[in-house]
């Protein structure tokens, strides 16, 4: 069964609108539908500004969608009252791209990870202390460093703190928005391994937003490609990588530099004029759809 189902999600932002200028509408997310199966890693890829983060933020109602449905375990969370939504968020968490700005620099690591437990009134003071120590261990941090401040940790360690915080309430669904793009190359693999281990250990379901297609190919079972607010192609990861149909997907895949000086180079340029933005998603093969 699908754990999360997104149906016809739309988010428009209004821009400008001064004395002399007309308001413009940015269609950040423009009729997006997909579902994430229990236990899988579903990846969202696409160029900067294509609407990936906005989709993720709408799903957790960190921004209010303009219209559409987000069904979590069959229920539309967009219709939830704020109290009900707060409870639902225990089960749906987000990990952010930038481990530098997403942690409050004036809070100790312990307090950062403990905070969601306090907000939800969970446990006693001492109970929470030992829960946070366990979470530290779970993400590979030394519990002896509980009382340190964020700046006393490296980038990879800060991302682990963010992850410990996201895991504090035992969620089943995690949206990871570019969780390793700000990390050093030699540290990225550590954090990716940790994410994969935790998924297995805690039976987590991931929506993984990413730029690095090599990484997406490695960790996701299915992938959706976003272009200008829309999903233009979606399917099993291997199928998309081997049998891409949409011009944008082809351009994106061909742009990834291969870490091999002898790899053949066959760049496919995208001609935006040739993309029919109104083409609906069409079935290409079992579970493979493209807007062509």
């Amino acid at each position: 069964m699908a754990l999360v189902e997104v149906r016809n999600l739309v988010k428009h932002f209004e821009r400008g609108g001064g004395l002399l200028r007309a308001k413009t509408v940015v269609k950040a997310v423009d009729d997006v539908s997909f579902s994430v199966e229990e236990g899988e890693t579903f990846a969202l890829v696409g160029e900067s500004g294509s609407g990936k983060s906005t989709t993720g933020r709408c799903m957790l109602r960190l921004v209010e969608p303009t219209s559409g449905e987000v069904r979590f375990r069959g229920e539309n969370v967009l219709g939830f009252s704020s109290a009900r939504m707060r409870a639902a968020r225990r089960d749906m968490q987000m990990v952010f791209q930038d481990p530098y700005s997403s942690l409050n620099p004036r809070m100790r690591a312990f307090t950062i990870v403990e905070e969601p437990l306090v907000i939800h009134g969970i446990g006693t003071r001492t109970g929470r202390r030992s829960r946070v120590a366990d979470l530290f261990q779970l993400v590979g941090l030394d519990p002896a460093h509980l009382d340190r401040y964020p700046h006393e940790f490296s980038g990879g360690q800060r991302q682990r703190i963010g992850l410990a915080r996201a895991l504090a309430l035992n969620p089943s669904f995690i949206i990871a928005d570019e969780p390793v793009s700000a990390l050093d190359v030699s540290i990225q693999a550590q954090v990716i391994n940790l994410l994969m281990d935790l998924q297995e250990q805690l039976k987590l379901t991931y929506l993984f937003i990413a730029h690095d297609l090599r990484l997406v190919r490695h960790i996701s079972s299915r992938v959706a490609v976003m272009y200008l607010g829309r999903i233009v192609e979606m399917g099993k990861t291997a199928e998309i990588f081997e049998n891409a149909q949409h011009a944008y997907t082809k351009a994106l895949l061909s742009a990834v530099p291969a870490p091999d000086p002898d790899a053949p180079r066959a760049r496919i340029e995208l001609d935006p004029a040739l993309v029919n933005h109104d083409a609906p998603l069409r079935r290409i093969a079992e579970g493979h759809f493209a807007a062509v």
Binding site: S154, S186, I187, Q188, A189, I192, N193, R214, I219, T237
Partner: peptide
């Protein structure tokens, strides 16, 4: 560094370099 580049079998663990920068 070369070994840590994703590219092996899907879902396999990456060969990370231990420790911190």
């Amino acid at each position: 560094l070369l070994a840590s580049i994703p590219g092996g079998g899907a879902g396999s663990r990456l060969k990370a370099i231990d420790g911190t920068v």
